[in-house]
């Protein structure tokens, strides 16, 4: 049986007009968040080339619209659960750039003072309940946070982001069934960037759409959207969140997108067919959204001011991080246990 290839979807610029449902301020924010992610991720890559970002890092260049669309649709009380490709989602919730870059550079000013690293970004005060580096692990964890919301009668939603590769691991299926059976207020967001690490997802998956084509097995609606269009992401997020808050249970959303960089810093992505990256770069989410703003009447100078401001923020954050000290040695033995220490014996 021939499988349909995932292609870049073409979304007509519909809905343009004065009765737009998204509105000027939200659009400005959607653009700004995407630019923050783009500039910070690009800076992370540059700092890696200067050997200032250590360890590994997994960039979301090209996938910014998903993080921005969901984060802007969230309330402050909503919770994000991310993967090791989590810089974007962390920044999108408003975590300062210097905290993220500081952690990537393994400095004392980092989000977790260098104890977690790039793959585990966490900022509870911003609702970022951790970035999980074992594929699939956080889907059940997001279910548990949603279970607490349901139990307590709280109206927050747990939003769980993961890649296409996650759809082939057991925890994905356990979590979807669990969430559906218990009608938990959780939204599962698959960022289908067409590659599970290095291998095309289509080569290792029984269905064309790794998340959406599994939805019916759990009684869920099949949802595939253009993940490079922040408006489409924002709208689908609003619908899913409303459903979750109304007690109607989980949603599974597959966002089609493309990773401009390799899987991790070690990956030059030589496995890509010629021209694929270039074709997707024509559908760069930031390029799309900049045109969208113009179409909706934003002044070029206003857009340029957003971009200049973000670039200045990234410059300032970089300078702060470069000047920051390495982690204080005394934190090495702290916070293993809740008493603040690491004692396992008397």
């Amino acid at each position: 049986m021939a499988k349909k290839k995932n292609r870049a979807p073409t979304t007509a610029l519909a809905n343009a007009g004065p009765n737009d449902d998204i509105g000027e301020e939200t659009r400005r924010r959607l653009y700004e968040v995407q630019v923050i992610i783009r500039e910070a991720e690009q800076r992370a890559f540059d700092l890696f080339l200067q050997n200032l970002v250590k360890g590994t890092s997994h960039l979301s260049l090209g996938q910014e619209a998903i993080a921005a669309g969901f984060a802007v649709a969230m309330r402050p009380s909503d919770l994000s659960f991310c993967t090791y490709r989590g810089h974007a989602h962390t920044l999108a919730r408003g975590v300062p750039i210097e905290k993220v870059l500081g952690e990537l550079m393994q400095r004392d000013n980092g989000l977790m003072r260098g104890k977690g690293g790039s793959m585990h970004l966490t900022s509870v005060e911003h609702g970022v309940m951790g970035s999980y580096a074992i594929i699939g692990a956080h889907l059940p964890i997001a279910c548990g946070a949603a279970l607490r919301a349901q139990y307590k009668g709280a109206d927050d939603v747990s939003v769980c982001f993961f890649g296409d590769g996650t759809t082939n691991i057991g925890a994905f299926h356990e979590a979807l069934n669990f969430a559906a059976v218990w009608k938990l207020p959780v939204v599962f967001v698959c960022e289908n960037n067409l590659y599970m690490e290095y291998t095309p997802i289509g080569e290792v998956t029984a269905v064309a759409h790794p998340a959406a084509d599994r939805a019916s097995a759990y009684g869920l609606e099949r949802i595939v959207i253009d993940g490079n269009d922040a408006d489409a992401v924002y709208r689908v997020a609003q619908t899913a969140f409303a459903r979750a808050r109304a007690g109607e249970g989980p949603s599974l959303i597959e966002c089609l997108t493309y990773r401009h960089s390799g899987h991790s810093r070690a990956d030059p992505a030589k496995y890509r067919p010629e021209g694929e990256l270039e074709r997707w770069k024509e559908r760069d989410p930031i390029k799309i959204y900049r045109e969208r703003l113009i179409q909706f009447g934003f002044e070029e100078t206003a857009i340029a001011a957003i971009e200049a401001n973000v670039r200045r923020m990234v410059e300032d954050a970089t300078a702060t991080c470069k000047a920051a000290a390495p982690p204080a040695v005394e934190i090495l033995f702290s916070d293993v246990y809740a008493d603040g220490g690491w004692a396992w014996r008397n």
């Binding site: 964890i141 548990g144 925890a171 069934n177």
Partner: peptide, 10 residues
């Protein structure tokens, strides 16, 4: 996995 993950999230 769902049992332990959900326990942790809760």
């Amino acid at each position: 996995q769902a049992i332990l993950g959900a326990a942790m999230g809760a």
